[in-house]
Amino acid sequence: MVKLLTIEQASEILNVPKASLRTAAEEHGYLVRIGRAVRIDQDQLRDLVEKCKIPPIGETSSKKWPRNADLSEQRDIVDRCKKAVEKLKLQGRKKS
């Protein structure tokens, strides 16, 4: 039997903000929408956390791609880089 959690319940379990969890779950395809209800499968929380892990800085910086990275992993890496660049651009605008 599938156990679906609300965003609030899942965020309490993981000890993360609700908005951050919802964004990550949506980006990685872990949201379950039934009508207007939005839920996360409890059994997929561990997978979601694994998807959100950031590799150590020195681990991939000297390589173009991890050797065993498939296309979806490469897209995830590119997406994280784009978000980091946008964040830095916004920080630069705020200081000016």
Rank of each mutant, 00 (worst) to 15 (best):
L90T: 02
Q42E: 14
L21S: 09
D43W: 07
S96D: 02
G35A: 10
R36P: 02
E12F: 00
E12I: 01
E50C: 08
A69S: 13
C81T: 05
I40M: 03
L4I: 06
K63P: 00
N68V: 09
A24Q: 14
L14N: 07
H28M: 13
A19C: 01
A69D: 01
Q74L: 15
R93A: 03
R93K: 07
A25L: 06
S72C: 10
I13N: 04
D76M: 11
V78N: 02
E50P: 00
A69G: 01
P56R: 14
E8I: 02
K83A: 07
V85F: 04
R39P: 01
D47I: 04
S72W: 11
Q91E: 13
A37I: 14
I57W: 11
P66D: 08
S72E: 13
R93Q: 08
A69K: 08
H28K: 15
I77A: 15
K87Q: 09
L21F: 02
E12W: 01
R67F: 12
T6D: 05
G29Y: 12
I34N: 14
D43G: 02
I40T: 02
R33M: 09
R80F: 03
S20C: 03
S61R: 15
E86N: 05
V85W: 03
W65K: 06
E27H: 07
P56I: 07
E26M: 07
D76A: 14
E8F: 04
E8R: 15
L21G: 09
Q44R: 14
T23E: 10
E12R: 15
T23C: 03
L5I: 03
E8W: 04
S61A: 04
G29A: 14
G29M: 13
R36V: 02
V2Y: 10
L48V: 07
K89D: 08
L21I: 02
A84H: 10
R36S: 11
M1E: 12
K51P: 00
V49L: 08
E50Y: 07
R39T: 02
G58H: 09
C81W: 12
K64A: 02
Q44T: 12
V49H: 02
D76S: 13
K89M: 02
E73A: 12
Y30E: 08
P56G: 05
A24D: 12
G35P: 10
S20E: 09
R39Q: 08
S96E: 05
T6V: 01
T60E: 07
S61T: 06
D47W: 08
I57F: 14
R67S: 08
K83I: 00
R93L: 04
L88R: 11
G58T: 08
K94A: 12
K87T: 04
T23W: 03
R80A: 07
K3S: 15
S72F: 12
I54K: 13
R75W: 06
G29K: 15
E86Y: 03
L90C: 01
E86I: 00
V16R: 11
R39M: 12
D41H: 11
G92Q: 09
T60A: 05
